[in-house]
Computed example of a mutant assay.
Amino acid sequence: MSAPSLPGRVLVREVGPRDGFQNEPEVVPTDDKVRLIDALARTGLRRIEVTSFVRADVIPQLADAAEVLRRIDVPDGVAVSVLVPNERGLDAALALRDRFDEVSVFLSASETHNRHNVNRSVEASLDGLQRVLGRAREAGLRCEAVISTAFGCPYEGAVDEDRVLDIARRLVADGAQEIGFGDTTGMANPLGVGRFFTRAAQALGDDVQLTAHFHNTRGQGLANVLAALQAGCASLESSFGELGGCPFPPGATGNVATEDVVSMLHEMGIETGVDLAAVLEAARAVRDVLGRPLGSHTLTAGPVDWSGTA
């Protein structure tokens, strides 16, 4: 039996500075955020989501979004992304338009999770995002739309694949150039992931970048990454140190760790352009800032040593 085909190169997008820091119980000092983002920007990562323009009373961990954007020092060739929930968030971001390259918007595939997350129906979210995407494209920004709970909802259970794809088609029609499919609470499994990304590629076509966003809640994160790759997906989102998570259901852990993803890809001969040692250094730095152990396996065990000298 021949091995499934895999992409020769995979784009890894770092979301820890946004997705990770917003889920920390304490506010990470701005100086530390800037230092860590600057370090990540020098690891070979080509896309980094650095913050989100959300209400400070809702997510105080990201109340310093504007200051972070002003202060980071990111080399040429590294695309800086910000997350915006609505037009008000976009307005705040556009005041610093020269400091970032991409904008991400989001909604959930399930009604219940969307109402818990943004207090709106899915239809109302789509109406609002149509305006956000249109204005962002007019401003020359590349646009990603993330669909949370794409592989299951902790409140509603199974989420219909056709519903997820219908939402994706509408977001593409409204201007999204990339669709991220989020396994928000780690409910995906490899067989389902492979089937879904095969269908998504057929439904959305070659002009739309498909991105996989997995959480490691039940230890299946890397298996799901492999399944997505085998289905042709060559773009992943991850978080250094396995930071992140979903604030609602108990036990929801962080995103797959960037260093775990990069380590696995390199061991399989897939290029990422990322320096694993540099990412591990950044993960150690954020572990020191947070003052607690992190879930990353490669951070704990170290990269594979093929010299046999361990």
Rank of each mutant, 00 (worst) to 15 (best):
T43D: 02
G44M: 04
R47P: 00
I48R: 07
E49H: 01
V50A: 14
T51D: 04
R55C: 02
A56P: 09
D57E: 13
I59S: 04
I59W: 02
P60Y: 05
Q61L: 11
Q61G: 10
A63L: 02
A65I: 01
A66C: 03
A66Y: 04
I72D: 09
D73Q: 14
V74R: 08
V74S: 04
V74F: 05
P75S: 10
G77S: 12
G77Y: 07
A79S: 15
V80Y: 07
S81K: 11
V82E: 07
V84Y: 00
G89D: 00
L90N: 13
L90T: 08
A93Y: 06
L94G: 03
L94N: 08
L94D: 02
R97K: 12
D98H: 14
R99S: 06
R99G: 08
F100Y: 12
E102L: 13
E102C: 09
E102S: 09
V105E: 02
F106H: 01
L107H: 03
L107Y: 05
L107T: 13
S108K: 10
S108I: 04
S108T: 10
S108L: 03
A109V: 11
S110H: 01
T112I: 10
N114F: 01
R115D: 11
R115K: 12
H116G: 02
V118E: 00
V118G: 12
N119D: 11
R120K: 14
S121C: 00
V122N: 06
A124P: 01
L126W: 08
G128E: 15
G128W: 03
Q130L: 09
Q130P: 00
V132K: 07
R135P: 10
R135V: 10
E138T: 13
A139H: 07
A139Y: 00
G140R: 02
L141Y: 12
L141D: 08
R142I: 13
C143R: 10
C143Q: 12
E144C: 13
E144M: 14
I147T: 07
S148M: 02
S148F: 05
T149F: 04
A150R: 05
A150W: 06
F151I: 12
F151K: 10
P154L: 06
Y155I: 03
E156D: 15
G157M: 01
G157N: 04
A158Q: 13
A158L: 12
V159E: 06
